[in-house]
Amino acid sequence: MNGKGNPKLLSLLTLLFALWNGCLTLFHGWTAFWWLGLGVDFLLIVGIAELIGKRIPPLYAPLYRRSLSVSFPLLLFLAWELLVRGGVLSPDWFPPPSRIVQALWELITKFDEFSKTSLLGRPWLLLGAAWGNRPETVKELLAESHLYATLMRVFVGFFLGATPGILLGMVMGVSPTIRTMIDATLSAFYVLPKIAIFPIMMLIFPDPFGEGPKIAVVAISVFFLVTINTMVGVRDIEPVYLEAGRNYGASGFRLFYHVILPGALPVVFAGLRIALGTALIVIIAVEFVRAKTGVGFLTFYYWEILSPEKMYAGLVVVMVLGVLLTAGLKKVEQWVMPWRKP
């Protein structure tokens, strides 16, 4: 009897939870009061989780917390599924998770005859072609892949924007003259929604519907974010590092390489992280508007032919892409800056 996590209270809450859901189901209350039902359920679950948490031995506490963070979204999906099946939510707007998973599976495994595209470039053929050393086939298959198209645009655009962004940002951080000259102009461009310059890009490039304008918009969005963050990173280096560097005989390029560059890197990487997210946002938006391939196109295309579960599947792909790209950048960050606290 340590008074922690009263077992009686726990059983009471569990009983309440069962009663509440049972009554709502029995008296067909879900249709009218689904929001109230979910709200009360949420509060009861929080209470139960809290009480169980107090009874968990400290050794298993981290495991318990992790299981909470995993099971909550699963519970949400379950609620969604049940609400749709019970006829509370319309499957036209909110197709149940099971059907979205099904649609995703279809997107991965099927070739769309009408648009002559597939999500991953038909991996079962792709692997065979790569194995059999048939570069022409590999190229064709990649060209029909939505994921490959989006990834390429993001990567190429990110690289083309980040490289000059880092260089200009460094120069602006080091030289107050250049900084004062360019800063105001840069800020003006920074606030401009980059998608708004897409028409200009289409005008400039010889093939307005090709890859050029799309990559250019991504590159420009990335460029401004990275430039500004790099400049701030360099400008705001702890002055004592510069003093120490100079006192120990570093100047010019060596001061830059040994002190300024590593000192600015954390902020530079913060900028790169934001820029990568922005690149994804911009490319999806561009693909909505004007593209024949890409995950954004895919999502919009299935809206046009009124196939909501595939539309949702497209969104899931975007989310997974975002998570994986950010995690990848994090890995690069740890590799470049091993001195940072993990």
């Binding site: 702890e238 004592v240 590092y241 003093e243 120490a244 006192n247 120990y248 005989g249 040994h258 002190v259 590593p262 000192g263 890197l265 800056m337 001195w339």
Partner: peptide, 16 residues
């Protein structure tokens, strides 16, 4: 060198 300075402790380079 003529002089070397010891600063407060946060002046050691965190990246080295």
């Amino acid at each position: 060198p003529l002089t070397s300075m010891v600063f407060q402790e946060y002046a050691v380079f965190p990246w080295k």
